[in-house]
Computed example of a mutant assay.
Amino acid sequence: MTDLTLPYRRRLWPLLLMPTLLLVAAIGWTGFWFFSAAQVDRIVDAWRAREAAAGRVFDCGDRSVAGYPFRLEVRCANARVELTSQTAGQAASQTPVTAKLGEILVVSQIYDPRLLIAEFKGPATFADRGQPRSMLLNWTAARSSVVGLPGPPQRIALVFDAPALDRISGATQLPLARARHAEMHARQIEGPAPDQPQIETDLKLEGASVQDVHPLLADPFDAHLRLLLSGLKDFRAKPWPERFRDIQAAGGRIDFKEARIQQGEMIATATGSLGLTPAGNVDGELQMVVAGLDKVIPKLGIDKMLEQGVPQSTLDRVAPGVRAGDVANVLGALDRAIPGLGKVVRQNANVGVAAGINALGQEAVLEGRPARAFPLRFIDGAVMLGPLKIAQTKPLF
């Protein structure tokens, strides 16, 4: 009998199933990406409206969305922001400060939209609206990340490499602040009650300096601060003075869990707590431990005050209540605060003041070096080193 078996015919549909599923998934994913991209304008506009109500008006000269297939990249070229009512002295009726930035790139993974990563291209310029630019901020790299949006942020990070802030006067740029590196990390943690969250902040500065604020800040220094902020119950966008007022009303404070500053041979650490008075001034006390205190005494200006005839403005800053032109009264005041200090100051102002301030505290050891431990008090905005007023802070609202 002849074998009439037909050739085996393979089924084709199993071979086409996987490519078909991949094609359907790609079409679905593409639709989802374009839908998400279409929501960017709505989300950004809603965010801009909230910020505008808080006195911060953001705008983009050119906004575009890219990043297909796995990311959303929102690029904002020629970014601009107008700031009003962001400091205690700036009323809503005053001319806003305008800041301009070259470009902002915000990136979000399509599968994790609560995480936003941003990069900033400088320089940024600042000016009163309608006026020439007055300050310029530049950097080699700047980036940030935010976790938790669109609700209250859970974590925030901001990093700058080589930030440089200049004051512009005509065609001249004058250095105002510099740093090799600056970074800030903040996260929301549980407070003593569910409706009382706290903000833990970690701030690091390397090679930082600030001009025209206080002589102590003019030379490069490194700083590391770990702070705990309480009293922040409302995370809605609002001007900073209003937010500081809310914190004060809630009894909020800033706890210094860790603070270390090094400037040359001087090293200082601090712990303590600061709050705000009803007038918006800083109030509280920090326990300082300082090694190399004698290295910064000349920057406090006390020795110059005595040597140069005691100008009344300087005298009001470091020894309130003593009249100018009466150095004997100054030395008498120092003698009353620390017996024998006035006599030593007559002989050597720097050594005398250093000895007097050393007498304010107790002997201590800091990182293997002899040091002094003493309180640094903030009394309604005045910064007091023992009986001496060394600075005055401005109200925050």
Rank of each mutant, 00 (worst) to 15 (best):
N138A: 11
R187K: 14
S169E: 14
H181C: 09
L136H: 09
T172L: 13
T140E: 10
F160Y: 04
S169P: 07
I168S: 00
Q188P: 07
L136I: 08
P150Y: 04
R180A: 13
A164K: 14
G151R: 15
S134V: 06
L165G: 03
W139L: 03
L165W: 02
Q154N: 10
D166Q: 11
M184T: 12
M184L: 15
H181I: 07
P163G: 01
F160S: 02
P152K: 13
F160C: 01
I189V: 12
W139C: 02
D166R: 14
A182D: 03
S144C: 02
R143Y: 01
G170C: 03
A186D: 02
P150A: 06
E183P: 08
A179P: 00
S169D: 12
R143G: 04
A177G: 02
R167M: 09
A177C: 00
I168M: 05
P150H: 09
R180C: 04
A157Y: 03
Q173L: 13
L176P: 00
P175H: 08
I168R: 13
H181P: 09
R180E: 10
D161I: 01
S134A: 14
D166A: 08
A162M: 11
V146R: 12
A141K: 15
R180H: 12
Q173R: 15
G148V: 01
V147R: 15
A186M: 13
L174G: 08
F160R: 11
I189L: 12
V147L: 13
S144V: 05
E183W: 06
A164E: 06
S169Y: 10
L158K: 10
P150T: 09
H181V: 08
A182S: 09
P152G: 05
V147A: 01
T172G: 05
M135V: 04
A162L: 08
R167S: 05
A171L: 15
Q188G: 08
W139F: 07
Q154E: 11
L165K: 12
S144D: 01
V146D: 02
G170D: 04
I156A: 00
V146E: 02
A162D: 08
G151F: 08
A142V: 03
L176W: 05
G148H: 06
T172V: 14
S169Q: 14
H185S: 12
R187D: 08
R143D: 02
A162I: 03
S169R: 14
R155V: 09
R180Q: 14
S134D: 04
P153N: 10
V146H: 04
S134Q: 14
S169C: 09
L137M: 07
S169W: 10
P153C: 00
Q188S: 13
L176M: 12
V147K: 15
G151K: 15
A179F: 01
D166Y: 08
P150D: 03
L174E: 12
Q173I: 09
R187E: 10
R187Y: 07
S145P: 03
A182Q: 05
V147N: 11
L158G: 01
L158Y: 02
A142Q: 08
A142W: 02
V159N: 14
P175T: 07
A157C: 08
L136Q: 14
V146P: 02
L176Q: 11
S145K: 15
S169T: 13
G148W: 02
A179V: 06
R155H: 10
P153H: 09
A179I: 00
A141T: 11
A162T: 11
P175C: 01
T172E: 13
A164W: 01
R167H: 07
P175A: 04
T172W: 06
Q188K: 14
L149D: 01
P150M: 08
V159C: 07
